[in-house]
Amino acid sequence: MEEAGKQTTVTKWSLTKNSFIAFKKDWQLYSLIILPVIYLLIFKYLPMIGNIIAFRRFIPGGSIFGEEWVGLYYFKMFLSDPTFYKVFSNTLILAFWLLLITFPAPILFALLLNELKNQLFKRFVQTASYLPHFFSVVVVAGIVFEFVAINGPLNSLIEFLGGNRINFIQLPEWFRTIFISSELWQGLGWGAILYLAALTGINEELYEAARIDGANRWQQTIHITIPGILPTIVILLILNIGNFLAIGFEKVLLLYNPLTYETADVIATYVYRVGLESGSFSYSTAIGLFESIVGLILVFGANYLSRRLTDTSLW
């Protein structure tokens, strides 16, 4: 590297020349990437630049980059908007409980599956548990509505046990429970796949050795199984923390209603309503940009911490 540094000009020139030769020889390979790159520039990077309307006044039908600079006007606006604090804290609370419950559950599920001796039964449990993952979020919302409906099976069970029927879907105090349960229902089996893969990768000899040392199954789990899947746990935890704020927005949009806004309204749904229903494009973009940047900081932060503490990281 030191050597190369001294010969910058020469290297640079030969690099361009090499690139040119490589390109001429292999133009077909390079020609393939043109369309996907143009696609990415227009449909992914252009909207990123489009976030500039958070700092500019936007007129529907005008330029997609807005008309004139207004500085931090829209950011000051949402910082003095009480609803913003409400949806921000709703997002944090929902995200916190979601992570706390839906992150460890698939790990436990995979560990339980791993203890099964009968492979046929194991397959059956897996096949059944993956199914809800493939349902459209609209169908899942429909299933939730029917399940917790006033005349639905859950209320029939409550009545059977001597309680009164509850109109769950209209009560703000039940929204988080319903939402998190539905996420758990849909994601438990699917979330366990990577852990199951990691579990099959653990060297059988480690267990042999532990048994000879007199370790029981519980001790084997603590000292061999868990450390064996720890890298997978860490990687998925980083990804989860990175997506901390990106709560299943489409599902919230389907499951909530004005009666449950108090607990159900999150940043993304607020952005949707303020932006697309009320037409305040710049204002809602400012809130959305705030959320994206916090998300980005969370990914890099979690990755950095993990690299320092556990030597496992995404990059």
């Binding site: 227009i42 449909f43 992914k44 252009l46 909207p47 990123m48 630049i49 489009g50 976030n51 309307i53 936007f58 997609i64 993304a268 952005v271 949707y272 932006g275 697309l276 494009f281 809602s284 973009t285 959305g288 940009l289 959320e291 994206s292 998300g295 980005l296």
Partner: peptide, 11 residues
């Protein structure tokens, strides 16, 4: 990192 709902909608 993505453009977010509104910039995408505008585009």
């Amino acid at each position: 990192f993505s453009g977010g709902l509104i910039p995408n909608y505008v585009l």
